[in-house]
Structure formats: C-alpha cells, structure tokens
Simulated assay, not measured.
Amino acid sequence: MKEVYFYTRPRCPLCEEAEAVLKLVREDASFQLYERNIDDKDEWMEKYGLMIPVVEIDGKVVQYGHIDYPTIKLAVDA
C-alpha cells in the first residue's frame, strides 16, 4: 500500500482544495494518508514553506501548489 504524505498548514485555501482532491482519490484508490502541518517542524517549514500544499508519495514529491486528481491517482496506482 502506498504511503501518501500531505504537507499543509491551517487556514490555507489551496490546502483545503488539495484535501478535497485527496478524499476523491481515496474513493477510487487505496493508500495510507499522513497529514503533516509544516508549522510543527522547522525542517518541514524550511523545505515546503513556499510550496504548500505538497503531496509526497513513497518519498517523492509528486505535486505541490495546485493538486489535481489525475496526477495523484496515477502516482498512487503506479
């Protein structure tokens, strides 16, 4: 099963849209989702601060900024 890490932060409109996309993908694909608030760790803030939302699958950044269904679904199914 794929491991999907979703880097986000509170009050982020793009993050809310990305979360909705991830929920739609979960209806059609099975994966383990881990949500991480970048404000929780300085390392995440430095790495992803200007990129959020970020979706990382099996250790690779698949998409950031604008998250879309086809890209995430293809990466989860790969």
Rank of each mutant, 00 (worst) to 15 (best):
V76F: 10
A29E: 13
P13E: 01
L33C: 07
L14T: 12
M45R: 10
R36N: 12
D42E: 14
V62C: 00
A20L: 11
K73I: 02
L22W: 01
S30D: 15
E16I: 05
A75S: 05
Y69E: 08
L14E: 14
E56T: 11
D40F: 09
E46I: 08
V4W: 04
E46M: 09
Y69P: 00
A75L: 02
D39C: 13
T71D: 07
R36T: 07
Y7P: 03
D40C: 06
L33M: 04
K23A: 13
R9F: 05
E56Q: 14
V25I: 08
V21L: 07
R11W: 04
K60Q: 09
E46N: 12
P53T: 06
R9E: 07
M1I: 04
T71W: 07
A18R: 05
L33T: 08
E35V: 13
Q32W: 04
G59R: 05
E3I: 13
Y64H: 15
Y48L: 03
K41Q: 14
Y69R: 06
E35M: 11
R26M: 14
S30P: 05
P10V: 12
L50F: 12
V61P: 00
D68P: 01
P13S: 12
I52A: 03
E43D: 15
P70N: 06
A18F: 00
F31E: 11
P10H: 13
I67A: 01
E16N: 10
Y48H: 11
I38K: 10
A78E: 10
D58H: 05
L24V: 07
L74D: 06
I72V: 15
P13Q: 08
M45Q: 10
R9H: 02
P70R: 07
C12N: 11
A18W: 02
E35G: 15
E35F: 10
D68Q: 13
M45A: 12
E43G: 10
I57K: 02
E16Q: 09
E17T: 12
M1G: 14
L74T: 09
A18Y: 01
L50K: 06
I38N: 06
K2M: 08
I52T: 09
G59W: 04
R9C: 02
Q32H: 14
K60W: 00
E19F: 05
G59D: 07
E35P: 05
V25W: 01
K41Y: 09
V62T: 11
V55L: 08
V62H: 00
E3H: 08
D39H: 08
P10W: 14
E46C: 01
D77S: 13
E19K: 00
V54A: 13
I52V: 12
R36L: 11
Y7N: 02
A78G: 15
D40P: 09
R36M: 05
I57R: 01
V55Y: 04
C15I: 03
L14F: 11
Y34S: 08
M45Y: 01
L22C: 07
R36E: 13
V4F: 03
R9Y: 02
I57A: 11
M1E: 15
Y5H: 03
I72F: 05
D39T: 14
E56G: 09
